[in-house]
């Protein structure tokens, strides 16, 4: 049996396409299901017709074609996709920082009582402050550049991930801990092989919540400062009263949120294989 490297490569690529296809089907297949198409098509037609018949003034509710044209215009003249990439970049940066800080802190807080007692009250004091309330002070400290935007996104995702991870780790079934301990597991092994796996579902769930709030904070951050991103385009469109452009931005933001959530669901499916059985 000889496998040339090339063989491996094509195998890897075919695996990748298969997985991506599976992902797309799982995530967005529901739109194109036979059932939903029957709802979607009439809705789209109505969307086109109702403003045209002036049942609702077209200046307030643009038609589907207006929105499509606005999308085209944004793409050609405003570098719409570049703005999407800016937004995604900030979003990912803030989210990843939140994940990489909140999950370990949450794990340590859930695992060890002295650590919990020293840290938890601090977070309990800070967490209830609604993230948007941080905007003014953040602008003063960081200015209105990238750091401020990333910080706000981070802030939105941090607390939900932290608290849910902490709670899940703390609630680990003591029997699992006992049964590893009796065979000699060290605390490190317990964390790596028991606590984390037991809490995995809850941790991914918490990241989903974090994504939702981080998205809110992305829009707020971009509306308040900076010259890039979809939130910025949204405010700009408002200033010029371009309702179709605003609708394009809103739909795009929704799509980003949906896509992230589905990506996490897919990750959960792949990681938590053992749950598929039941």
């Amino acid at each position: 049996m000889h496998y040339t490297p090339r063989n491996y490569g094509s195998k890897g690529i075919s695996l990748l396409t298969r997985e991506s296809w599976l992902f797309l089907k799982n995530a967005f297949g529901s739109i194109f299901s036979r059932e939903f198409i029957k709802v979607l098509l009439p809705l789209l037609v109505l969307w086109e017709i109702v403003p045209r018949l002036n049942i609702i003034p077209r200046t307030l509710i643009p038609t589907l074609s207006d929105v499509a044209l606005a999308f085209w215009d944004l793409t050609l003249n405003k570098g719409f996709f570049l703005h999407i990439i800016y937004s995604l970049g900030k979003f990912l940066a803030g989210l990843l920082i939140a994940i990489f800080l909140a999950i370990p802190i949450g794990i340590f807080m859930g695992w060890n009582i002295p650590i919990r007692k020293h840290t938890l009250p601090l977070f309990q004091i800070l967490a209830p402050i609604p993230p948007p309330a941080w905007v003014p002070i953040t602008i003063i400290i960081f200015g209105i550049g990238l750091p401020m935007q990333i910080y706000l996104i981070f802030l939105g995702a941090f607390y939900p991930i932290l608290f849910n991870t902490y709670q899940a780790i703390k609630d680990t079934d003591p029997r699992y801990l006992s049964s590893a301990r009796v065979f000699g597991a060290s605390e490190l092994t317990l964390i790596l092989r028991v606590y984390i796996w037991n809490a995995l579902g809850a941790i991914i769930m918490s990241v989903k919540t974090g994504v939702a709030i981080a998205l809110v904070m992305l829009v707020i951050a971009e509306m308040y400062g900076g010259r890039s991103g979809i939130g910025y385009l949204l405010v700009e469109a408002k200033d010029f009263f371009q309702i179709p452009a605003m609708v394009v931005c809103m739909l795009t933001l929704g799509l980003i949120g949906w896509f992230s959530i589905e990506l996490l669901k897919f990750a959960e499916l792949k990681l938590a294989l053992w749950k598929v059985g039941r």
Binding site: S179, A180, R181, V182, G184, A185, S186, R193, K275
Partner: peptide, 29 residues
């Protein structure tokens, strides 16, 4: 560390015993 813990980083049973729990406590993952 609570007195129940074995060690912080080294796997090391305190005693050479094994236990089967009432609800087995095998790891589902």
């Amino acid at each position: 560390l609570s007195p129940l813990a074995n060690d912080l980083i080294r796997d090391r049973p305190k005693h050479d015993i094994a236990m089967i729990f009432q609800d087995y406590a095998v790891f589902p993952w």
